[in-house]
């Protein structure tokens, strides 16, 4: 304790600023810590380099970065094996179960369920047709003017095929008392 106080007294006496006294607050004549000044100058130099790189030597703009990112993603995209013209209806239990899960997890029932925002999918009336390719197309590309979301960015073609199959095989006749009335044309 005693040595600590002595040490303090020495540092204070040797470095106190003469005539600096503000309501009893004194100031020491220490230089700013060298590491602090060094990093400060470092950030200034870094900033100059940064500005030169992006604005004098034309470094990539955020649009350039975006285009690069998209091009890379496109190059790595897997190829589709089927589309709405050659899709087939699946009927195996595993696919239909998968379809049912997707129907729930993609929130299809937010509109095609109790809320009745979209048309019901349980009766024989279809606005855009009930062929497997037609339903597939509606799910994949959406129906802009009606507010149907395109799911092509959210499900693979395989998954859309499973949901389509689930709808056409399992949902038929599954109406409840609350289900919305028929819309569209009747298909047998």
């Amino acid at each position: 304790m005693a040595t600590e106080e002595k040490y303090d007294q020495e540092t204070i006496n040797s470095k106190l600023m003469i005539d600096h006294d503000y309501d009893g607050i004194k100031e020491l004549d220490n230089p700013p810590p060298p590491w602090l000044m060094l990093i400060f100058y470092g950030t200034i130099i870094w900033s100059v380099f940064y500005l030169f790189y992006y604005h004098v030597f034309d470094g990539p703009t955020q649009e350039d970065e975006y285009n690069t990112e998209m091009a890379e993603a496109k190059a790595n995209m897997p190829k589709n094996v089927f589309d709405e013209n050659n899709i087939v209806l699946l009927s195996d239990a595993a696919s239909l179960a998968e379809g049912e899960k997707l129907f729930a997890s993609k929130a299809c029932d937010a509109c095609h369920g109790a809320t009745n925002i979209g048309p019901n999918l349980t009766d024989e009336y279809w606005i855009h047709g009930n062929k497997v390719g037609e339903v597939f197309k509606v799910i994949k590309y959406g129906v802009a003017e009606k507010g149907m979301t395109p799911f092509k960015g959210q499900m693979t073609d395989k998954q859309i095929q499973q949901v389509t199959s689930y709808i056409l095989v399992k949902m038929k006749g599954a109406a409840t008392a609350n289900t919305k009335g028929p819309q569209g044309d009747k298909y047998e």
Partner: peptide
């Protein structure tokens, strides 16, 4: 802070610079 600690401010020069 210096009042409560009853210590002199560490560096007048640093005050100016920062």
């Amino acid at each position: 802070l210096p009042k409560a600690a009853n210590r002199p401010v560490y560096s007048y020069k640093l005050s100016i610079i920062h």
